[in-house]
Amino acid sequence: MIEITDLRKSFGDHAVLRGVSLEVARGEVVCLIGPSGSGKSTVLRCINGLESYDGGEVRVFGERVDAQSDDIHRLRGSLGMVFQRFNLFGHRTVLQNVMEGPVYVKREPVEKVKQEALALLKKVGIEDKACAYPAQLSGGQQQRVAIARALAMKPDAMLFDEPTSALDPELVGDVLQVMRALADEGMTMIVVTHEMGFAREVADRVCFLYDGRIVEEGPASQVLETPQNPRTQDFLRRILHAASQDASAAS
């Protein structure tokens, strides 16, 4: 469904992606992990053309992704994206945020969209906040609205760019819960994350990126529990160490 072949991208002199290849089949959940600056988010942003690329190719549903092309808007409609900083439209209510895409991009009838939007808000557990403005919600609530907004377009796949990284720890669970339910329904998902627990439990496959390349890839249990590459081992050790420090600090 999503095929990435030898993807290359530089920002000026700095090569961010040095040949990334990745295939994601329908219904698969793939987690991209790796240290910051390894290129995880850039891969994700190349998939829906928010970022252009210099070499290689990205194909979605068999179509080549080209950030400059006129077709990119249609393609984006079938790829939901959730951002680290939620990026809700600040001047519109929760319900309006969710309805915006179907009503103004797809031009669907308002009444039908409204019913669907309310159902989505119920699904992510914030139907009671439908009339609130984003600034009145917690980060976790905002992120669930952002997920509902992406789902309202009825996408064939969802891209998550560190969806829990900007959240207070106690709010992470609710968002992951929504994502887990989505994966259970068979949604195709690519998730950039630092949540190793989520990756282990939900991902069909985990890719470890380092310095613009995928250096290790495989089933979640294999990559996370018996990593072969020294870079992966080192990264996981640091992450687990930080997590256990958090735990001991909390106890």
Binding site: G77, M81, E100, A146
Partner: peptide, 12 residues
């Protein structure tokens, strides 16, 4: 970010 979010739902 809001511009990107709008692009991501297919807005021109």
């Amino acid at each position: 970010g809001q511009r990107e979010a709008a692009q991501a739902i297919g807005m021109r």
